[in-house]
Write a protein that binds this DNA or RNA. Structure first.
Lengths: 142, 142
DNA sequence: GTACGACTTCGAGTGCGCTCGAAGTCAACA
DNA sequence: TGTTGACTTCGAGCGCACTCGAAGTCGTAC
């Protein structure tokens, strides 16, 4: 896989991919005659890193994690990596709790609006809270 | 409630509170001899706005929502507010799904690390979700 | 009557996470 | 041989959401 293909697969740009490598967010990718070759291992790790990032783990912590990985599987490295992940997991559980609460509140408000005017219920394309799969604006794009 | 008290209650600064008002993230707070007086209604709405913001709703959308509220309860305003909330709710459900997935992955990795060395289980100080402070907190303030 | 806290406007600065472009080099493929 | 695509370093710029400070005014309370 070339960098262009990796970019396509991850939804990042080649710029960003190189940038991530440069700042140590991912390990240096192996080269063949100077060009980066992305294999399964690289891709899987990048996906993992993107998950961390998408869930709000600060770059610094991800960098720390990657640094520890490079240190190898010493007990110390493993313990510290574990700690980082445990801390992030705790953070995610908090996030989820807050998210659940917010969803409840919003659903209440939606119901309220729906009941205010029979006329004025949210537009059908988007009306049911169960219809949770619509990614974004239902009126653009058909 | 003065602005200082409101700041304390929300965890924001007085600066930020005025800033939010200025950019239309919250309605103008009623004044008594020029000074803002925060009542229950204001506080509750601010908390709601903070929930929206904490769950990643862009300022612009919150501003739009507040603008619509100010328009009053016309069918159009209500429908549009409903739509905004429904869209955000959908977004939150996606977020939650991704969050759940990430939690599972991280827990797997934690278990893996735990099993690698009996020695190297995550340190107790940090092991319990109850003891959870986020890794390098993105929002300052406490 | 003065201290305190709030008010206003203004503008600059911060930190994060990209994002882009320029300029020049190099290797593989048709 | 020439067109690609990738490589490097460098530095500027951007959008978001604050964050801070300065300067000067005003009202209330001890």
């Amino acid at each position: 896989m070339t960098i262009a293909e990796a970019a396509l697969a991850t939804g990042l740009t080649t710029h960003t991919l190189r940038y991530y490598e440069q700042i140590g967010l991912i390990d240096p990718v192996p080269r063949r005659s100077g060009q980066r070759v992305y294999g399964d291992i690289e891709m899987r790790f990048i996906q993992f890193v993107l998950k961390l990032r998408a869930t709000g783990m600060p770059m610094r912590d991800i960098q720390a994690y990657v640094r520890l990985r490079r240190e190898g599987d010493t007990p110390d490295s493993i313990r510290q990596r574990g700690d980082l992940l445990v801390r992030h997991a705790a953070h995610l559980r908090e996030q989820r709790a807050s998210l659940d609460e917010t969803i409840v509140r919003i659903d209440e408000k939606i119901a309220l609006y729906g009941s205010m005017y029979a006329d004025a219920t949210p537009s059908p394309a988007v009306a049911s809270p169960a219809t949770a799969s619509a990614p974004s604006n239902p009126r653009k794009h058909a």
